[in-house]
Amino acid sequence: MNSLVILNSVIDEIGSALLFFVNILKTLMRRPCSRDELFQQIWKVTMQSLVTTGLAGFFVGAIMAVQFTLQMREFGALGYLGGLATSATVREVGPLLIAFMLAGKVGAFTSAELGTMRVTEQLDAIRCLGADPLQEIILPRFLAIICASFFLLGLGLVMSIGGGILLGGLLAQVSVEEYLRHIPAIVTLSSIANGLVKCFIFAVILATVCTYKGYTTTGGAKGVGLAVVNTAVSTMVGIVVADWLTSFIADVAIRAFVGSPF
């Protein structure tokens, strides 16, 4: 009985978040937000995560290089180190890493900011002053998280190649030229498309969850704290589930429309 109640509330919550997402899309179609506010938010989100994403990207590249070196040395295939490490980062680790970084920094920040606006009645005040909170407050943050995800993915990838080159050189004596040589051959259009699709889906999940949790906060300071915790948990679970789903669907789709996934 208890687990049924929990399941019911989870389904209810997912349904409400989906309706909220549909309302954001409707608002986007009817009344787009101000361009200045959007650029301001993109700048804020990007700058908030720039250093952590760059650092994380660098070390992911380094970790990939270490892991691939250990296995590929045995096959005498170290020449492919750069290509395989970059392909894995582009297809899987990069989007996932960016999503987790953004969930930790921007997702928590956004839900706390919106939650505070809710409990201090600022969102109600906006409605009373003739504005639509979805258009003025939610939409710029929602779009900014999605746009910033792509910038940060690019940064994370560049940094991961840097990390891979450094560790590849130190650990396996692979030169920069050798590391980069097979990247164009292994990192194909389909790999990039796969990474971009995942990055977009993760960003939409993150943006929806953190704005929804913040917007529907109740119960004062404790409620804001709960909203932040729930945002972190829900986005992590949502992103992992979506990763599994998109890996499967994207592979099938890319095989059908583009060709080999590699």
Partner: peptide, 13 residues
């Protein structure tokens, strides 16, 4: 809402 202005419990600035 133009006719009825509301002052909230919190300043809500």
């Amino acid at each position: 809402r133009k006719k009825c202005g509301m002052v909230f419990q919190q300043p809500a600035l």
